[in-house]
Each structure stands twice: as structure tokens, then as C-alpha cells.
Amino acid sequence: MNKCHKGFSLIEVMVALSILAVLAMTIVPTLTIVYGERVTIREQQQALSLIDDRLQIWLYDRYNSVNAEEVDVNGTLYDLQSKTIAHETLQVCVTWHGSNNRSYERCGYAKK
């Protein structure tokens, strides 16, 4: 009798699944860190955009001051503070608590 067996043995399948499991255990934590950093970068870009908007309002719309306010964007609360630091120079600072549990502050300046 001539038996022709086609397919994988149980041990071959177990080895392949264990290799796949080890790869998944190393890739998933790395992807989680990368995703968290991407969210942080988006938050920083949003903060810089808020600073730019406030400075543009002050420069071109001829407002004398920009009031302090809190802005909620996608679940992140940004605290905007502005003050005149020199003759016709405005400083706008944004502080927020990031999704990675760190506090951030960014400032921008404009002069008329």
C-alpha cells in the first residue's frame, strides 16, 4: 500500500502558532506606544493651531486683547492665556494635560 499524506502535522502547526504568538506579543506593545505618541503629536498640533488663531485675531482683526479661555477639542481641554509683554507684543500660551498623562505648555508671540 502506498499512502500519500498531504498537509501539516500537529507539531508543525503548533510551532507556527507559537512563532506567531511571540511576534504578536512583541508588536502589540510597540504599536500601542506609537499610537499614543501619534495622539500626543495631534494634541500639540492643535495647540499650535489655537495659538496661531489667537495671534491672527489680535494682529489682523484689530482687537486690543484676546481673552483667556478654555477650549475643548476632541476631549482635550486647552487653557489659553494671553498677555501683553512689551509695547505692541502679545504672548499667547496654551496649557493642557495630554492623553499620555503629561502636562504641556506652548507659547507664541506676535508684534504689531
Rank of each mutant, 00 (worst) to 15 (best):
E12S: 12
Q91E: 13
Q45L: 13
Q46M: 14
N67C: 01
Q81A: 10
V66I: 03
I27S: 07
C93N: 06
W58M: 05
T95F: 02
E43S: 04
T95K: 10
L50H: 00
D79V: 09
I33E: 14
T95E: 07
G75A: 03
W58V: 06
M14C: 08
A24R: 03
Q45I: 05
R102H: 11
E105C: 05
N2G: 09
L20P: 11
D52S: 04
V13P: 05
A86R: 08
C93S: 11
T32D: 09
G98Q: 02
K111A: 15
L77N: 06
G36M: 12
R106A: 14
G7A: 15
R38G: 12
V73T: 10
D72F: 01
L90I: 00
K6L: 11
A16L: 04
L59N: 08
T84P: 00
E37L: 03
R42I: 08
M1C: 11
I85T: 12
W58Q: 06
T40I: 14
S18R: 10
T30W: 06
I57Q: 09
L55H: 04
V94Y: 08
T32F: 11
V92G: 04
V15W: 03
G36R: 13
I41Q: 13
L77A: 07
D79E: 11
Y35P: 00
N64K: 06
S82Y: 00
R102N: 10
L48V: 00
L59P: 03
E43Y: 01
P29K: 04
T32K: 09
R102M: 03
Q91R: 14
Q45M: 03
I41M: 13
T95S: 15
S49D: 08
S65G: 05
A21C: 12
D53V: 01
I33H: 01
R38P: 00
S9K: 05
C93Y: 00
E12Q: 15
H87Q: 09
M14L: 15
A110C: 02
E69R: 10
S99T: 15
S65P: 03
V73R: 10
Q46I: 15
Y109L: 11
L17P: 02
L59R: 15
N101C: 13
S103T: 04
E105I: 05
Q46P: 09
M1F: 15
K112Y: 09
Q91F: 00
T76C: 01
A68C: 11
R38E: 06
L80T: 00
D61T: 04
L80V: 05
S49F: 15
G75F: 02
T26R: 09
D79Q: 15
M14W: 08
Y109H: 07
I27Q: 07
T84F: 04
E12A: 11
L90R: 05
S82C: 00
T89V: 03
A24F: 13
A24T: 04
I11K: 02
I85A: 02
I51W: 01
L55E: 10
V39K: 12
H97R: 10
R106H: 14
Y63F: 08
C4H: 08
